[in-house]
Each structure stands twice: as C-alpha cells, then as structure tokens.
Nucleic acid binder design. Structure first.
Lengths: 195, 195
DNA sequence: CCACCGAGTCAACAGGTGTAGACTGAATCG
DNA sequence: CGATTCAGTCTACACCTGTTGACTCGGTGG
C-alpha cells in the first residue's frame, strides 16, 4: 500500500519548480534562441505540453526566469557611491546568479532580455548620476556600468584566464582605484591631479 | 541596344560583394542565430541557393565575416603598455567595425564566434602580460580586456545613455587613469599608494 | 555561329520549432 | 462510492530552417 499519495497541489508545484530550474539552467547556458521548450521539458523530465500549460509560452517562461535584480538605492558622496557600486559588483562576481546570466547571455539577440539588462543598468546609473554635480555624469556612471558588465561577462561568460578563478576580493581591489578615478577624476584626464 | 554586357566575372564579384555586405550587416544587427540565409539573400537581392553556392554554408559565410582584427604586438614598460591598450580601445570605439560587432553579438550563443573573440583577447592579454613582472599579471590584463569589451558593448550594442554619443577621446580620457592603476597598481588595493 | 559553361532561379526535402488539442488515469470532493 | 477535476502524455499542425538539385538562359571561347 503506497500510503503516501502525493497531493496534487504539491505534485504540481514540484514539476513547476523542476521546469523553472531546468529553464534557468538552459537559458543561462545556451541563451534564449538555442534553448527549446522540448529541451527544457526533457531536462525537467516532463512533457513540452505541460511547460506550455503552466507557463503559456516560451516568451513568458523566459520573462519569468530572466530577471536582473535591482539593488537598493545608492546615495552619499561620490566616493561613497563608487564604493557602493564596487560592492555591488562584488556581489555579482560572488553570487553567480543563473537568472542574470540568462538575461545577459540573451541580451544581444533577444529584445526583451536587452531591455531587462538596459533598464537595470540605467536605474543604477540614474541614481548614481544624481550624486555627481559634473556635466558628464551620465558618461561616468555609464562607463562604470559597462566596466561592471564587462567584468561579469569576462568572468562567467567568456571565462577569461585571469578572471575565471580569481577571488572576488582581488578583482574588486584592482578595480577600486578605477571606479574612484572615474567617479571623481577630473574631466580632462589624469594629467592634473588635485589630490 | 544595351551595348555594355556586364562580363561574367565582374557580375559574380558584384553579387558576392552584395552578399558579403548584407551578411555583415545582418549578422552584426541580429547575431548568428537570428540571421537566416534567406534574409541575407533577400537583402542582397539574390537567391538563397546562390549564397550557398558561393559560400558553401551559413557557418562558412559567418566565418568569412566575423573576424576580429588583432593589432600589432605591444611592448615596453607597463605604463607604455597601458597607454597602448588604451589607444587600441580608442580605435575600437572610433571605428565601429561591423565585423567585430557581428562576432561580439554572436559570441554568447555561437561557439565559433566566442572562440574568435576569446582568442583575440587572449593574444592581446598574453603579450601585455609578458611585460608585467607581477604574479597576477593574467588577472590584470584579463581585467583590462574585460573593461575594453564592456565599453564597446555599452557603446554599440546596448547604446547606454552616456556612452552612445560621447566623443571617443572623452571615454579614453576617463579610462586612462583606470588602465594605469590596473597595470601598475599595487596588488593589495589603493590604500597604500607609493606614488 | 554554335556548343558550352556558369550565374541566376525555382521547387523541394528533411529536420526542428512553438504551440494546440484530444486523451488517460489517478487524486479529489460531494 | 460515483462524478469530476486535473497532472501528465501523445499526436499533430503549421511554419521556418539550412541545404540540395534540376532547370533556364545569356555571355563566352573555339
């Protein structure tokens, strides 16, 4: 007597979770286009039809997965802002969030993913820019965002030699001075340092 | 009487050029997966069959297009190396080579494109690393490569607000100090500056 | 001038895609 | 206990993909 007949609600939750996990993994590894509903279903040991039933469409499934989490508002002096942005990079380099990787990997070919990444970066950018009273604040904060993105890509998506297995603290240590110089460096280059 | 019957050789060259131009454009805009042979043929005002006949396969056509040009060997003191890498970024930010964009846009989903970009970056990295007598030279040069890539991506592929229309000199000026600090900064962070 | 070659066109194939719908059987509920 | 709901499965559709081969027809070399 199989006395433990798994309740239907729980059964459903389990399969949905398996599908989400498989989707996260496959989207992160192969990007949107190269990930098929059939592959997700297979990896989740289910049927493509079920994936459709639970998540409506491939698009919706991807949207459910590929979220880049926005961090809390930054504020303070430019130096503090630089330090905060650096810390946020540290988290990203430490955590390896499959969801963000899925979005980043797909952002060049999938419009929705590009929008997701762009908006997350712009949100960060606007807030940081507000604390900088220089005319080219947009450029500076955008640059820092780009550098952050480049670092994450180099480490996780390209696996560059020096970056792949470096301890996060070492990476952030090397970038600390960079971030600071960009945030409050003088606009005409480093030739005239006032500090 | 249309007295100028275009010679066959030239006719062929023209069509091949049209195909190559269309492929460059479409691969750069949409990436490998989302670019179809049919679309290339249509944009080149030809037939898919002809594309196959002239370039054998989609793969070969892409390989023909997506080449990231390696620049000449860098050498000298670390400071000079930093300056050279910065200049090379300047070129990249100025030129907007469709070919490289095609490779970069496809590198997350197309293995061959990833290899192309990786190898171009590693070649640069190895040479630059040779001039640095520190144990973490790989990390430093890899980081600079990642920052360069991030900048190009932010400018051309994401079109970030501050980066999209900033003059290249301004970008390189802001990054100059960063590159230098990474190349010859001290390994334990910027807290103890010897300069 | 005529046979040939090759640029260009067309239709089709085999495979893979997202998605829809009918069906089955067991958990659920009155 | 009987009726019903619903997780899970299977089949099929319509479409799009890279790629192939047969066909046309005008420039080309003998």
């Amino acid at each position: 007597m199989p006395a433990a007949p798994v309740p239907r609600a729980e059964q459903r939750r389990r399969t949905q979770d398996r599908i989400l996990a498989a989707a996260r993994k496959l989207f992160a590894e192969n990007g949107y286009d190269r990930t098929t509903i059939r592959a997700v279903a297979a990896a989740a040991k289910t049927d493509p039809g079920l994936v459709m039933r639970y998540f409506e469409s491939k698009e919706k499934l991807f949207a459910r997965i590929a979220v880049v989490d926005r961090h809390e508002p930054v504020d303070g002096t430019p130096e503090q802002v630089a330090e905060l942005l650096l810390a946020s990079l540290g988290e990203k380099v430490t955590a390896e969030p499959a969801a963000a990787l899925a979005a980043i990997r797909s952002m060049f070919t999938h419009p929705e993913a590009a929008k997701e990444v762009r908006e997350a970066m712009l949100a960060e950018q606007r807030q940081a820019a507000g604390t900088m009273p220089v005319p080219d604040a947009d450029l500076r904060t955008g640059l820092i965002g780009a550098l952050t993105l480049g670092t994450v890509i180099g480490r996780y998506l390209l696996g560059l030699d020096g970056l792949r297995d470096a301890p996060p603290e070492q990476i952030t240590a090397l970038l600390r001075e960079s971030f600071h110089s960009i945030v409050h460096g003088d606009p005409d280059g480093p030739s005239a340092r006032s500090e």
